[in-house]
């Protein structure tokens, strides 16, 4: 409660001066240490001010096709998730298709997160490590899901049994 009142009071004070001043005021007001969430890396100068912004070569497989593919995979998960409940029975092939689609959806989702938060131009090595780490993890999980689907009861049936346990 106190923190809500405090922040609204501060916002009234902080409307007039610049953002920097309000940050300093807040930092001075609070007794806990200020922790920056993901502080920006130190800047560096590349090229001259008159260089044109680099335009990447057009690549639909990394752009529009990829975007559309992502949406198609996401949309296909809706009927795949609903199907076992609508049919009232479980088909091993459908369960395997669901697992494969989930794996692709997870992989591209994690890829999007890496592309957004580990930029190529600032942290090229961390980017490469993250992308290849993800590729390795996806292969491992794909193998594990294959094992689980072929030698155990499958994902949907497991969740059903856990829910009824």
């Amino acid at each position: 409660m106190a923190s809500i009142a405090r922040s609204s009071l501060l916002r009234q004070v902080a409307t007039k001066p610049a953002l920097q001043n309000s940050i300093i005021a807040r930092a001075a007001f609070h007794t806990t240490a200020k922790r920056d969430l993901l502080p920006p890396l130190p800047q560096r100068v590349v090229g001259t001010v008159n260089d044109a912004a680099p335009v990447p070569p057009p690549s639909p497989s990394h752009g529009s096709y990829h975007w559309t593919f992502d949406r198609l995979v996401a949309a296909s998960l809706i009927p795949l998730t609903v199907a076992p409940f609508a049919a009232g029975s479980l088909n091993p092939t459908m369960d395997a298709v669901l697992c494969a689609t989930l794996l692709i959806h997870s992989h591209t989702g994690f890829q999007n997160i890496i592309v957004d938060y580990v930029p190529q131009y600032r942290t090229p090595r961390a980017r490469k490590a993250a992308i290849w780490g993800l590729n390795a993890a996806t292969v491992v999980v794909g193998l594990a899901l294959y094992e689980y689907e072929t030698s155990d009861v499958g994902i949907t049936e497991t969740i059903k049994r856990l829910w009824k346990a």
Partner: peptide, 8 residues
């Protein structure tokens, strides 16, 4: 992913 890796 954690469950898959652990299962394997």
């Amino acid at each position: 992913y954690v469950f898959g890796a652990a299962y394997l």
